[in-house]
Amino acid sequence: MSIEVRQINKRFGDFVALDDINLDIQTGELLALLGPSGCGKTTLLRIIAGLETPDRGSILFHGEDATDTHVRERQVGFVFQHYALFRHMTVFENVAFGLRVRPKHTRPTDAAIKQKVHTLLELVQLDWLADRYPAQLSGGQRQRIALARALAVEPRVLLLDEPFGALDTKVRKELRRWLRRLHDEMHITSVFVTHDQEEALEVADRVVVMNKGRIEQTGTPEQVYDQPATPFVYQFLGDVNLFHSRVHEGWAEVGGTRFAAPEAGDKAVIYVRPHEIDIQRIATDKALAGVITHVRLLGATVRLEVNVAAGDPVEVELTRERYTEGRWSVGEAVWLSPREARVYAG
């Protein structure tokens, strides 16, 4: 089912949580709402679910206005950040809840409920936990039970609020691959909220980057990473070095290398990712002179911190091989030149 978000506004007191949000979510896609905390992503998700009412604007489910539909009737599956499992019910009863509270004439029989619940528990590979209570489960297990519970009511859309936020790194990685596979099997329209760019890029079909109640960019993971629309997106999706430059005849310059500058203004900020910088020992007038002050080994890559004459220290990322070949060490004088960069008006 497709979802259309039309000119949604929401304030909490003086705080503008959402400022004129427009968004189309296509049937069957897995969409990530990505942004720092306080950017409004959770509020948007809750408005789609019907847990929050917008001040203005409308939500369309499959072309029909659902703005005033009560959360009960929206047929959405919602997975809460802290799962919100009913602590006094077993896993089985938690998953069965949505079926048991249906009005008599649409309620499945006990046998049908039992079968459905077990099918779902098998789907999330936790059939053997049916009689446990939530308190007896691990975080990852709770997460999967919360998902099974949300799926039990056969939702038209699945909404997940920071689904992996409360888990440790290893479980998180396993679960997000599992979620991706599950989505590929079921093809249910899904939206999840996250502040972790790696998670969004890895799992989602499309990523919506939000900041301060506005959408900064919408696109596939490749698009938002390779062609960031705004400086915010560029910074949010990975580490970055900033260089300030004056614009001369349409060109901005970093250590002698020139980049095309936007037309507006005579100042520019040049964004360069650490792995897009070349480092060498031979002085050229086209490079930025500096001194290595720190070397940090980060597994497969190595980060060098280089002090330059003007501005903040520059971070340079090398592969392990290049680092070993070059035998870089602290205190050495080096010259830097960016291979690629994006230039925004400063």
């Binding site: 949580a17 905390s37 959360v71």
Partner: peptide, 9 residues
């Protein structure tokens, strides 16, 4: 989200 809102209940 720090803002508490339980309007759906």
């Amino acid at each position: 989200m720090a803002i508490k809102q339980h309007s759906v209940l």
